[in-house]
Amino acid sequence: MIRLTSEPILLDDLVRAAGDPASGALVLFVGTTRDHNQGRQVERLEYEAYPGMAEREMEKIGEEARRRWPLQKVAIVHRTGVVPVGEASVAIAVSSAHRADAFEAARFAIDRLKEVVPIWKKEFFEGGEVWIGDQCCGVGAWSDAAHAHGANHEHAERVSASGGSAAGRDGAGDAHPGAGQGARVAGGGVGPPSAIAPGPAKRD
């Protein structure tokens, strides 16, 4: 079960979809809207997806998880549109014969989802709104994995108080180290892209 939905996520559906008689463990991860972020009082989140590609990328994550861990089933559902505080925006259910594999694979799946699946999150807070993932240093942190956050510069968030985009031109990008420099800085402690949940070799 892999899908996008504009309706509230029904966790029972995922548990049923991932359930399997050969599994002894089922891990359910639920990502929910938190009422605060970086000192801001969050009112709601709004998710936008690239339909088609988002599901495809989620499928790939499920396939990769099954290749890396001995799993029974993987179910991933992501909500789009407004997600109020406390409600689920994403849920992942993974079943396996033994719990360690299910825990690790679920962790991998959510981490990977947040890196590659074309779904965007806009935070609405008291006094403004901001696209999350877009504000670091004026360049996309997601694509510059080696970028060492906070290593040697201030973050300048592109927070728009009015909902317009004028705040985007803050010149923050000028202070951003180039990709090469970023990688060098990262040598001080930020792992390479390959650091993601390496996972065990399949046991057999």
Partner: peptide, 15 residues
């Protein structure tokens, strides 16, 4: 495709 929503959550790697 601008940075996807995990950007702030310390994604542990890139695509």
């Amino acid at each position: 495709i601008p940075p996807v929503s995990g950007g702030q959550d310390r994604a542990t790697g890139g695509p």
